[in-house]
């Protein structure tokens, strides 16, 4: 279960503090559920996702993760000067997998299909190669809840097919909180939905209701 209690968030801009992106969001997200975040561009979907993942911190309020939550899948930090392998080692160690490091590395190397590039510095990678590595990294660990920000769009056609299968498998096994703009993707993976509108979040048990609410709010 992830408890989100009355969080507010605004960013620092060059002209002082910005507007409130999230204003009093409270949610209880069960562990075994796949949830889609829906909302217009700039509504705060990615912000909420980053807050849940613990990458960023709310300006007010608190979040409690009572299970193992992944980092936002598309945003796994990669250090440009290190090679893909070194980055993977770093992530394994941070997550306490020093003992079975070799297994995890083998998985990442195999799944990302980077071949020789796996030992090249990440700064030389193309966008597609980066997201391959990031995707492989987040699949290498067993989390209770995965959070994902538009990650399904990564890589070329062949890799996309592979990720879709792996993604589906993962969504069946663990909980998932995802941002996607494509209605089909949301319906395919998610049972429930959270609609973010004007700084507030609304919970819907069924994703279809969330999509309906979202569409009704769009001015004709």
């Amino acid at each position: 279960m992830i408890v989100v209690n009355d969080i507010h968030k605004r960013y620092k801009t060059e002209h002082g503090v910005g507007r409130w992106v999230l204003q009093g969001v409270s949610l209880n997200i069960p562990r075994k559920l796949n949830v889609g975040l829906i909302g217009a561009n700039g509504a705060g979907k990615s912000t909420l996702l980053r807050l849940i993942g613990g990458v960023d911190h709310p300006s007010k309020g608190w979040i409690e993760r009572r299970c193992r939550v992944s980092w936002p899948m598309g945003e796994g930090g990669l250090e440009g000067t290190l090679s893909g392998r070194q980055n993977a080692k770093f992530v394994c160690r941070v997550h306490g997998h020093q003992a079975d490091l070799a297994d995890r590395l083998a998985f990442v190397e195999d799944f990302s299909e980077l071949r020789e590039a796996f030992d090249e510095p990440v700064s030389t990678y193309s966008t597609g190669m980066r997201s391959r590595l990031q995707f492989a990294l987040s699949l290498a660990f067993d989390f209770d809840v995965y959070i994902s920000d538009e990650v399904t769009a990564a890589g070329d056609a062949a890799f996309r097919k592979k990720t879709a299968t792996a993604f589906k498998e993962m969504a069946d096994r663990a909980g998932l909180i995802m941002v996607a703009h494509d209605e089909g993707t949301l319906k395919e993976f998610c049972q429930s939905g959270i609609w973010i509108h004007a700084g507030k979040a609304y919970w819907f048990d069924a994703i279809d209701d969330a999509l309906k609410a979202y569409k009704e709010a769009i001015p004709q």
Partner: peptide
Amino acid sequence: MREPRNPLAISFAVWQAIFLREAIDR
């Protein structure tokens, strides 16, 4: 669900990882 790691264990794991990462960089 796996037992959550002790905060100190996490810190040590992070320190070890950063140490190796920094040493490689230097």
